[in-house]
């Protein structure tokens, strides 16, 4: 399988890229609809009902509306950075799709540093948020950007450490190897603490409530994208939902056995698991109030990182004994 991945042709790469673009767009459209439906049903209301079956193509209508909106560029922004930020936030999420195994064969390039590639590109998101916040020349936006940087730095560490304990068990950074190692039992049963830690960190990494401080509406209006309108705003939105997909995909690969499952094809199982995780993250958002910023940072440095480290040490110890 590994050799097959190395001999991917240029044609395959282009087809893969087109596939990824399509997936990103369709995924975002679906997730936005799903979020609206999930939140609505949690809030005693039906949600979008008018456009299509139960509002299924409401998001397309919204996207078309956003496309038609005027792109406002405030006078005092730092123009090159301001314009580049929506693109910069969008590129790394595309790259991450290169290494995600959707099923046994459906993978664009099976690299042996797969996890590292995803995590390092995910770190670029912070740069884009910082660019957007700083270039907007707006105090609320700068606030959002500063918070975002502090938050992502704080939560990448426990995220990485929890994943390390799984990697330690498998002995490989390659995502297909990690899925293959779960042929007998899913790692969620072996590493329950790591799974919980990962979900918390992933929620924070994607700036979702209760950790949505960079765009905390009631405090910072809209945070780092306060000054963005039209399709530029939509790109931030798109990136957020695609990021959600990526962290959920990682959770599926690391803890829920990836594409493995009976009867149904691998791809279907993979997507079911991913959307189940996403549903969980949405559930958080529509249930919890927002934490305060100092509480958020304290949670990471004083609770999550020590716990993750302890988990890693215990894992290493057990592995040595066995």
């Amino acid at each position: 399988m590994a050799t097959a991945a190395h001999s991917v042709s240029v044609f395959g790469m282009i087809a893969g890229l087109i596939g990824v673009m399509a997936l990103v767009a369709v995924n975002a459209l679906f997730l936005i609809w799903m979020e609206r439906k999930v939140s609505a049903h949690m809030q005693l209301r039906p949600g979008p009902m008018e456009v299509g079956w139960h509002g299924a193509i409401q998001t397309i209508a919204d996207a078309l509306k956003l496309l038609g909106k005027e792109l406002i560029t405030p006078r005092d922004v730092d123009k090159p950075v301001y314009l580049a930020a929506p693109i910069v936030i969008f590129l790394p999420v595309l790259v991450s799709f290169l290494v995600i195994p959707f099923s046994q064969n459906l993978i664009i390039r099976d690299m042996h540093v797969g996890v590292l590639l995803i995590l390092s590109f995910a770190a670029l998101t912070v740069l884009a948020i910082l660019m957007a916040g700083w270039a907007s020349n707006n105090k609320y936006a700068v606030f959002g950007a500063i918070r975002s940087v502090a938050q992502n730095v704080a939560y990448e560490i426990p995220l990485l450490i929890t994943l390390m304990s799984v990697i330690l068990m498998v002995g490989s950074f390659r995502l297909t190897d990690i899925v293959a190692a779960q042929n007998r039992i899913w790692f969620v049963f072996v590493q329950p603490v790591a799974f919980i830690l990962y979900i918390i960190c992933a929620t924070a990494e994607t700036n979702r409530a209760p950790f949505d401080l960079p765009e905390a509406e009631s405090e910072l209006v809209a945070g780092f994208h306060t000054e963005y309108s039209g399709m530029r705003f939509a790109l931030f939105f798109l990136a957020e939902y695609t990021n959600m997909f990526i962290v959920a995909a990682l959770a599926t690969i690391f803890f829920l056995g990836g594409w493995r499952g009976p009867f149904l094809p691998g791809l279907v199982w993979f997507l079911i698991k991913v959307y189940a995780i996403i549903f969980l993250i949405m559930w958080f958002r529509w249930t919890f109030p927002r934490v305060r910023f100092d509480q958020l940072i304290t949670l990471s440095w004083k609770i999550l990182i020590p716990l993750a480290l302890a988990n890693l040490i215990v894992t290493a110890f057990v592995l040595k004994l066995v």
Partner: peptide
């Protein structure tokens, strides 16, 4: 008030 604290859902329950 809960909306201020970032919890959206109770708002709808109260309004109901």
């Amino acid at each position: 008030y809960l909306l201020d604290l970032g919890a959206f859902t109770p708002f709808l329950y109260c309004f109901d």
